[in-house]
């Protein structure tokens, strides 16, 4: 009811003021308390354990980009949730994956999704991919004080650039520093070191969409192999990584059956060779 009970029931003046096509800016004027960045800071660094999201990987291929994330959230040494979703559609041509404090990260993603949709509706056109990446930068900056108190959020953003006709990946640090990942793959989160190693050996620039998905799932497997906070594919519970593919036809999330088939192939191969595919020496 916040939206319409102030005053006479008519739309408040703020709603009818032309100008900004940003939802965040509108909220900052009208209901700043709804913005994550306007909340009070915890007085001391946070020592309680809040659920943390872990590893996200992304790989580009000619014609698009794949993003995948494992399903584990941890709280210290505990598994807080084994089927958390950490890769979300941002809009029709981009997706965002999150590592870090899960509660804050999910809220940031929700605001980011509304921000993009709001812009699209008001302007009548979609925001450029660079523009979307920039909006996300600003949200991470807004969370910087929280990050300094121990509640960091580090997203990974990927999308299809309709103007250039290529898939792109943007990675961030907790201060909002952004880098356009030109080498075609990247990873974030606690298992990212191991995932990156795997990606480095498996990536080539002529992958198709299905192969790119396999590369991502292999990398997540390797991350789970060496990082206790990253969840491996759970065959008994049928909990598989979230996989989204973005191409010029838009974003599609792979179904559990599709991902399950990839996972089974990989797991079967690992039964023979637990460390995964062998890269040539030279």
């Amino acid at each position: 009811m916040e939206a319409n009970t102030r005053g006479t029931g008519r739309l408040p003046a703020a709603f009818l003021t032309p100008g900004s096509s940003s939802f965040t800016e509108f909220l900052a004027d009208y209901q700043p308390e709804l913005l994550p960045s306007r909340r009070g800071l915890p007085a001391t660094p946070v020592t309680v354990e809040a659920p943390h999201g872990t590893t996200i990987v992304a790989v580009t291929f000619p014609g698009g980009v794949v993003m995948a994330g494992d399903r584990r959230a941890t709280m210290g040494n505990l598994i807080a949730q084994r089927d958390i979703e950490k890769v979300f559609p941002a809009d029709e041509y981009s997706c965002v994956g999150i590592a870090g404090t899960a509660g804050l990260a999910v809220e940031m993603v929700k605001l980011f999704q509304v921000e993009l949709e709001h812009y699209e509706k008001i302007e009548g056109t979609t925001m450029s991919l660079e523009g979307k990446a920039n909006r996300l930068t600003q949200m991470i900056r807004g969370n910087l004080p929280m990050a300094m108190q121990g509640l960091a959020v580090v997203p990974l953003f990927a999308g299809y650039d309709l103007d250039a006709g290529v898939g792109r990946i943007y990675s961030y640090d907790i201060t909002g520093g952004r880098s356009d990942e030109q080498q075609g793959y990247t990873s974030v989160g606690s298992g990212s070191l191991f995932a990156r190693g795997a990606l480095k050996k498996l990536y080539r620039d002529d992958l198709n969409a299905d192969q790119a998905v396999t590369v991502c799932v292999q990398a997540l497997y390797d991350a789970a192999d060496d990082d206790s906070a990253t969840g491996g594919p759970d065959l008994s519970r049928k909990i598989f990584p979230i996989v989204t593919v973005v191409t010029d036809e838009g974003l599609s999330r792979w179904t559990d059956e599709q991902v399950g088939a990839v996972v089974r192939t990989i797991v079967d191969a690992r039964l023979v060779r637990p460390d995964g595919p062998n890269a040539p020496l030279n």
């Binding site: 916040e2 319409n4 739309l11 939802f23 509108f26 209901q31 509304v114 709001h118 008001i122």
Partner: peptide
Amino acid sequence: IGGVRYADI
């Protein structure tokens, strides 16, 4: 625009 803002909020 007012309506879009109302709906989104």
